[in-house]
């Protein structure tokens, strides 16, 4: 099978599964397995509002326009759903990132949340802060960690693409007694997140985020489509391995 054919099969299957599951789920309620990070995230947002402290979201190297565009969009969607809860507070959440193209997306995510709550007077465009990317994103990590600490953020939510620089953010969170919920789509970042974070989101669990927080039917349909594709891939790997062995 050529790459083009694989892409077409994946897209058509995902499209059919998403639409099919969306229709099916109108009649059958979806029961989701527990992902602790998605239990903790709304609670962290509620804590931040009650204590009038900020919550810090970091997108790391996730960027629009190239490889990680869709993971950036999903991260922004998760941030939006949490920012909706935070937008009742005067303390605007902080979003840090190091891809300049993502800056308007981050600002707009916050703006939409405040507009939804009709509290635009609390919205600050500068609550989304860009830091330049160094050779290992350490300049970003140093800047984001110190800004989060200086603004007394009660917790750090790292969603997107982080490498080893995640250790720096994690260390700073520990020193300043901040909660750390972390995800990375890079293996180095994922390993560090496992060791340092209070709660960790593994690999594709980030993409399940919209289905766990104020879900729409299409979000749940999308999650079911991912599960179907996962089983198809597992089946494909097993068949190929058996074929090679026999």
């Amino acid at each position: 099978m050529e790459n083009v054919e694989v892409i077409i099969v994946l897209l058509v299957t995902a499209l059919a599964a998403t639409l099919g599951a969306r229709t099916l789920l109108r009649r059958i309620p979806l029961v989701l397995r527990q992902i602790p990070a998605f239990d903790v995230l709304p609670a962290a947002a509620a804590d931040a509002v009650e204590s009038s402290y900020r919550l810090h979201f970091a997108l790391g190297s996730s960027g629009l326009g190239f490889g990680g565009s869709l993971s950036t969009l999903v991260s922004a969607e998760v941030i939006y759903r949490l920012a909706q809860r935070l937008a009742v507070s005067r303390q605007s959440p902080l979003i840090t990132l190091n891809d300049a193209l993502t800056l308007p997306l981050a600002q707009d995510t916050l703006r939409r949340a405040y507009e939804y709550r009709q509290t635009m007077e609390y919205y600050r465009a500068h609550a989304a802060a860009w830091f330049p990317q160094g050779q290992r994103s350490l300049a970003f990590a140093a800047g984001a960690a110190s800004l989060s600490a200086d603004l007394d953020a009660v917790g750090n939510v790292l969603l997107g693409r982080f490498g080893t620089e995640l250790a720096f953010l994690g260390e700073s969170a520990m020193r300043h007694d901040q909660t750390l919920i972390a995800h990375s789509d890079l293996i180095e970042g994922q390993a560090i997140a496992f060791a340092q974070a209070d709660q960790v989101l593994l690999g594709e669990e980030l993409y399940a985020g919209p289905a766990y927080m104020n879900p729409r039917k299409v979000d749940e349909g999308s999650l079911l489509a991912t599960e179907l594709l996962r089983w198809l891939v597992i089946f494909g790997i097993l068949v190929t391995a058996l074929e090679a062995a026999l």
Partner: peptide
Amino acid sequence: LIGVGLGTVTAGVRVLLGQDRS
């Protein structure tokens, strides 16, 4: 990577269906 890839495909489908709100 496979998990992230599959998540990306379904997120892409959501965008193509006009269901992304960003």
